[in-house]
Write a protein that binds this DNA or RNA. Structure first.
Length: 301
DNA sequence: AAGTTTCACAACCGCCGTGGC
DNA sequence: CGCCACGGCGGTTGTGAAACT
């Protein structure tokens, strides 16, 4: 650990013996409910920041970094975990096209979501699909897949959702996503959002394609109900995509730049990243795209 | 039923920027 | 100006649970 290396590597530093001792037997791994309580109680009284001090004063044998991470990703009252909605997925695609792997930047636009969760989402869901296509996430092939398959289907699913601002749980249980048996997760306390509402688990509900359609709309097309992903011409979506749901108001449709009239103004970055130019109205006529579709369907797990 | 594989996500690692001294 | 502590960030790993064989 870097803190260890730093602490032990500079003997002349003004580090107290206590600190050295604390660092020497620093605890790692899953957090226990007791540790969570200590951290939450301390932060509730003294506030966050100065994490090394928090770790020391709260009586935690953890590094400041570990405390900070635990707080930001798990204990913070407004943190939301699991159940990434369709709108959020679309937002992530959009923001990733603008910011790249700057997860914290992306997380700023998704209230309650942490950079860690978005990063995990991208790696487990999106990069997995790129791997299936045997291409890089930055490759043209993958962008084509997003442009012609995923995003249209995502929009289609958003359209089909009665209340598209509502979350769409994959499954619901009264337990939590935290798998540690001794960890707090089941009841770290009432300040934590997850303790007062059901926690949505992603239970790997596999379709025939081997992927969860809630997360990967392109592969939901591989399921038997709609093997032909061309069922949804983009023009059908023109009047039903409610951008308010994505960005909390300020509907901002700009038909002039995308040409299709399908996407809101700040969707242009995504569109350009994906190749730009064409409208969705004629995209399904491209033989290459049909090939891509077939490849997607054939590459299922 | 048992063993293996896959998945999702919490947590750690290491680098870097920043501010205080 | 240089050093140091600290926090932030992106990449990676570890692990429990679910799915599969």
């Amino acid at each position: 650990m870097e803190d260890n290396a730093r602490a032990f590597g500079s003997a002349n530093q003004q580090q107290s013996d206590d600190e050295m001792m604390m660092i020497a037997d620093v605890r790692k791994g899953p957090w226990t409910s007791e540790e969570d309580s200590l951290l939450m109680n301390y932060v509730a009284i003294h506030g966050d920041g100065r994490w090394n001090s928090v770790a020391r004063c709260a009586g935690l044998k953890r590094t400041g970094k570990s405390c900070r991470l635990r707080w930001l990703n798990y204990l913070r009252p407004d943190v939301r975990r699991g159940n990434i909605s369709l709108q959020e997925q679309l937002t992530i695609l959009e923001l990733h096209s603008r910011f790249g792997n700057r997860w914290s930047k992306i997380a700023q636009h998704l209230p309650g979501r942490t950079d860690n969760e978005i990063k995990n989402y991208w790696r487990t869901r999106v990069q997995k699909q790129a791997k299936q296509l045997k291409c890089d996430v930055n490759s043209k092939q993958f962008r084509d897949a997003m442009r012609y398959v995923w995003i249209p289907r995502l929009l289609e699913r958003i359209r089909a959702t009665p209340d598209s601002s509502a979350a769409q749980p994959l499954s619901v249980s009264t337990t939590t996503t935290n798998s540690y048996t001794d960890s707090s997760s089941n009841n770290h306390n009432t300040d934590v959002a997850s303790s007062t509402s059901p926690v949505y688990h992603h239970h790997n509900h596999m379709t025939e394609s081997g992927s969860d359609p809630s997360f990967m709309p392109e592969l939901s097309g591989a399921s038997s109900d709609s093997l032909d992903p061309r069922v949804s011409p983009g023009s059908d979506l023109t009047d039903c995509y409610n951008y308010n749901n994505l960005h909390g108001g300020g509907a901002n449709m700009d038909n002039s730049q995308t040409g299709s009239g399908l996407y809101p103004d700040n969707f242009n970055d995504l569109w350009n990243w994906l190749g730009g130019g064409d409208s969705l109205d004629n995209m399904w006529n491209d033989e290459n795209i049909w090939f891509l579709q077939q490849q997607l369907l054939c590459d299922d797990i």
